[in-house]
Simulated scan of single mutants.
Amino acid sequence: MRFFRVSCTRLSFSFFYFTMAEPSNPHSTSTENPEPSSPVAAEEEAEVNAPGKNLPVLKWSRSSFETLMRDIQMPPEYGAIYPQEGDTVGDAPAGYVTMFADFFRDCNLRLTLTVFVAKVLEWYKLHISQLSPFGMIRVRNFEYTFRALGIEPIVGDFRRFYQLSVSMGFYSFRQQDHTPKLMVPPKGMTKWKTKFFFVLAASITEKLQFRNVTEPIITENISVPKADTVDWFPDLRIIGWVRLDNRQQWVLRMILGRMSSNARPVVREKGGDEAPLWRMFCPDFKGEVVTTCL
């Protein structure tokens, strides 16, 4: 079966929408036959210091933090705060959780979590602070790829493409063998453990749990996606990594919005015709995301 690759360019719009997460048991695939295995190494994190006594300390400026908060329009009720000098990712105050700046910059994360992100964390028994940006960027790329194509993203299909991995105490996902490569992470995600901040634990409404790093990782054994195993395969377009702004995430239903209930975002071509969401990612797209009233 043939794949259509859509090369990505940076797009620029701006606004806000998100879907309150209500975790439930993820979709399961009838063809799976998991077996325990030793923890799988995450290649991108191999050079990172082990957590514990030798965690790197904070190393990004307060002004960079404040700029990020403005750019992503972080709601004030989430209580995002800049750490104190000398803090590490393990020093979140009582009632707060650690977030990495790259989650919100390159990984396109916004709060609150979408149902899909919450279900991924729930399925793998991960707390969000245990997932590296290399893992988060794959989760969000999968979500916007499927939403852009009008396919509901579910954990069962995510598992067709990715295998949970762990290195130095943080979790990521590696590509499953014989599956189409959906994306390559940007090279700019370096020293991510030194660029973090804290948010109120109450802003993560899902009841996430911390996974013990000594717990064996289940090796996934799920059928490779193809035309005779999944009905969406013929529609799949590979949409690589791109940094999305708030309006783009709003139209993709990947963040919550604070706007009139009778407003909806749509993608329009340059001439004004409404277009499918995946057109945003095409190199020849000259249109925009606009707001219309129902």
Results as ranks from 00 to 15, higher is better:
residue 136 M to T: 04
residue 273 D to S: 12
residue 138 R to V: 02
residue 267 V to M: 09
residue 147 R to G: 01
residue 16 F to I: 08
residue 181 K to W: 07
residue 231 D to M: 12
residue 119 K to Q: 15
residue 27 H to Y: 12
residue 173 F to D: 00
residue 47 E to A: 12
residue 169 G to R: 06
residue 31 T to W: 12
residue 9 T to D: 14
residue 71 D to R: 15
residue 33 N to H: 14
residue 162 Y to P: 00
residue 137 I to T: 13
residue 293 C to P: 00
residue 92 A to N: 06
residue 189 M to A: 03
residue 176 Q to R: 15
residue 88 T to I: 06
residue 244 L to K: 07
residue 277 L to W: 02
residue 216 P to R: 07
residue 177 D to V: 07
residue 148 A to R: 04
residue 213 V to F: 04
residue 126 L to Q: 04
residue 163 Q to P: 02
residue 87 D to E: 09
residue 84 Q to V: 10
residue 33 N to C: 10
residue 256 L to Y: 07
residue 53 K to N: 04
residue 84 Q to Y: 05
residue 150 G to S: 06
residue 212 N to R: 10
residue 123 W to N: 13
residue 140 R to N: 14
residue 294 L to E: 10
residue 25 N to E: 14
residue 126 L to K: 05
residue 35 E to T: 14
residue 248 Q to F: 01
residue 111 L to C: 04
residue 121 L to I: 09
residue 133 P to V: 02
residue 63 S to A: 08
residue 102 D to K: 11
residue 8 C to R: 09
residue 179 T to P: 00
residue 29 T to V: 13
residue 15 F to Q: 05
residue 101 A to V: 05
residue 1 M to Y: 07
residue 100 F to V: 01
residue 36 P to E: 09
residue 18 F to V: 04
residue 54 N to L: 11
residue 37 S to T: 14
residue 77 E to H: 15
residue 240 G to E: 13
residue 238 I to F: 07
residue 79 G to Y: 06
residue 85 E to W: 09
residue 49 N to Q: 09
residue 163 Q to L: 05
residue 253 R to N: 15
residue 208 L to I: 02
residue 175 Q to W: 15
residue 154 I to K: 10
residue 45 E to R: 08
residue 179 T to L: 05
residue 62 R to P: 00
residue 104 F to A: 05
residue 120 V to L: 07
residue 78 Y to T: 03
residue 65 F to S: 03
residue 60 W to R: 05
residue 140 R to C: 14
residue 282 C to W: 12
residue 100 F to M: 13
residue 43 E to R: 14
residue 206 E to A: 15
residue 38 S to R: 11
residue 214 T to Y: 01
residue 36 P to C: 09
residue 3 F to T: 06
residue 130 Q to N: 10
residue 111 L to R: 05
residue 195 K to F: 01
residue 119 K to W: 06
residue 254 M to N: 05
residue 52 G to T: 08
residue 260 S to M: 11
residue 149 L to P: 02
residue 24 S to C: 13
residue 187 K to V: 09
residue 121 L to A: 11
residue 123 W to D: 15
residue 224 V to Y: 01
residue 204 I to N: 00
residue 26 P to G: 06
residue 143 E to C: 03
residue 133 P to N: 04
residue 250 W to A: 14
residue 294 L to A: 10
residue 181 K to H: 10
residue 108 N to D: 12
residue 154 I to W: 01
residue 267 V to T: 10
residue 237 R to A: 07
residue 117 V to T: 11
residue 31 T to K: 07
residue 271 G to Y: 11
residue 142 F to V: 00
residue 167 S to M: 09
residue 110 R to T: 10
residue 113 L to C: 03
residue 60 W to F: 13
residue 264 R to E: 13
residue 46 A to L: 15
residue 206 E to M: 03
residue 9 T to V: 14
residue 20 M to N: 08
residue 218 I to S: 14
residue 81 I to G: 02
residue 152 E to L: 13
residue 205 T to I: 08
residue 246 N to F: 02
residue 59 K to W: 06
residue 233 F to A: 14
residue 165 S to M: 06
residue 59 K to F: 08
residue 278 W to N: 04
residue 178 H to Q: 13
residue 230 V to C: 10
residue 85 E to C: 06
residue 18 F to D: 04
residue 255 I to A: 15
residue 118 A to F: 04
residue 238 I to C: 08
residue 263 A to D: 14
residue 63 S to G: 00
residue 78 Y to E: 01
residue 254 M to A: 07
residue 203 S to R: 03
